[in-house]
Design a protein around this nucleic acid. Sequence first.
DNA 1: TTGTATGCGTTATCAT
DNA 2: ATGATAACGCATACAA
Lengths: 358, 358
Amino acid sequence: MATIRDVARAAGVSIATVSRVFNDASLVNEETANRVLEAAALFDYWPNGAAKSLTTRRTNTLGVLLPDLFGEFYSDVIRGIDQQSRQHDYQLLLSSSHSNSDDVLGACRAMLGRVDGLIVMAQVEPLLETVERFGRHVPVVLLNPRDDSQVHDSVAVDNFNGALAATAHLLGLGHREIAMIAGPAGNSDADDRLRGFREALVAAGLAPERALVVPGDFREASGFAAGETILERRTRPTAVFAANDSMAIGLLAALRRAGCAVPRDLAVVGFDDVTIATYLNPPLTTVSVDACRLGREAVDMMLAALNRGGGVQPARRVLPAALVVRQSCGALPAIASATETPAAAKGPPGTVESPHPR
Amino acid sequence: MATIRDVARAAGVSIATVSRVFNDASLVNEETANRVLEAAALFDYWPNGAAKSLTTRRTNTLGVLLPDLFGEFYSDVIRGIDQQSRQHDYQLLLSSSHSNSDDVLGACRAMLGRVDGLIVMAQVEPLLETVERFGRHVPVVLLNPRDDSQVHDSVAVDNFNGALAATAHLLGLGHREIAMIAGPAGNSDADDRLRGFREALVAAGLAPERALVVPGDFREASGFAAGETILERRTRPTAVFAANDSMAIGLLAALRRAGCAVPRDLAVVGFDDVTIATYLNPPLTTVSVDACRLGREAVDMMLAALNRGGGVQPARRVLPAALVVRQSCGALPAIASATETPAAAKGPPGTVESPHPR
DNA sequence: TTGTATGCGTTATCAT
DNA sequence: ATGATAACGCATACAA
């Protein structure tokens, strides 16, 4: 591959001049610059990124560490990160599907010298320690961090209040026997949503330990299985809060198969507001989370950290999670007057969206 | 950040020794190695990736160029690429959401010197020229290439035969008025699926130009809109082939809203076999595409190209696309005896899967 | 405006 | 087994 030296020789100039042409062409005589550009075109030359970042100590690359990515949520987060970083001319060094902390350590190390900062969604506890070490070398932005330790910048979704709102909605409809399909234990999103669920029950004077909590893993199949579990119960709940939409979808399928009508026989509410929530039968009442924005905000924080050069108090940003009322829970008298939002992008009408009712 | 020199000084050895410890510890006396490791731990030292790849001329990184990624398909492709590359200790430099060829050129240039190879899904024509230029510097593997020019390795999904099978299935059920919801024009997946659709009609002695083809963009909303278009027709088709599942989902919602029963009033078949296809009402008959495998195979081809060092005839791999019969088209007498596959991962029973009936 | 020379942090070659 | 030193490809301070 041609180097700066080849181009310099062909153009009859020094390598410094070639470098200038590619970095700030205004520093060099236009005529000379053209000669250089010609020579460069001849070799199809372009500066070597690795060498460049070695001298400039900047890579224009952001490292992204994610857990196993299944479902629309994670892919939306990536899209958000991608869009925003491209906007600012940053590349993405991606590393997902991490389970154990050795994986993460290896990924972090391989990134040293190749990234200017690291955006991490570390759902599992032990990973954080590893990331912590890495944070001494480059700025780190945490996505949905488990704790509020505030040692790094972070941006999170308000899972707790979202779950609170979803459960409150069911309670407001008169439901008293509400079950929950939980997400994977140890996952902070899942944990926060479970906490919100319980808190809402407490606030309504119900004993949270009495409520049925069926385990799940955020995938459709686990929602289906949970549905079967719930249907088997002698005392069936009248409503179910699924910790995410994927499981709600599995649940709906299980209920349909058993001839259990939604919302008549059982009310269902999900979490995430994935694209197809609107297209389900019935359209799913759920909690809207803007995953794409989560990614964008993380990049913004990172860029800010990169520009200020550290030293400032870590920031923490929490994105709202708003209840979206559709038809899987039946109508709530209190919000019957909610305006019919003109369904975005030709979405099916009949979709009533309302803000958080609390 | 500590460098190899700091560690060498602290351990009382030369930088060469430190380098050896981190690359092939067997080359150095165990005692000395331990001293080095201690010093390294002291500074939390790890070799700088950029510097390393400058000398070794290897980055252990694969560049990935994708178009706008919406839907499960693309995120599955990424997961496949990610899993397989991690397996072989490669990182991923990701760049998606590309529309114009300037974007792509910029992305490619920024990758020069940072990647050992490039995996590209360039659906739009002009991008290929840019990639072509890049291909002179590093190996390139194409995902679902538009043409069969065979200048690069490529791995593709058999969209044509998949669409052929889907349409043949409808024809086999007796349908003669079959509409199609097409994908975005210019997208090679979409084009190939449309070709397969037409070809099947021709093979059945029907005039493809008579068939209704409604435009779409692979998103749910466009499927919904297409559904409304179809319902408005005076002469309604008896079956619809949607170029992907997302649009089929939108279509199903539109039909349900209009009180049009599936499959009784209208048969529907999709493409992709996304996770939720099984959980829809009715479960969606569709064409199964293993997007994850597509990504994995691409990485395998790339690694092979990297190891052999070029020169060999470009390879072309085509992954099968198999029809999965569920319930959105009604039962086909000919395959009524199809075995009830034990639904994977607790999928809802009632899902009859059968191989390609042709 | 342009050229010279140094350094970025590492690996690799050749000594010892 | 270890050390000295030359690349690697570039940006930049300094000199001209």
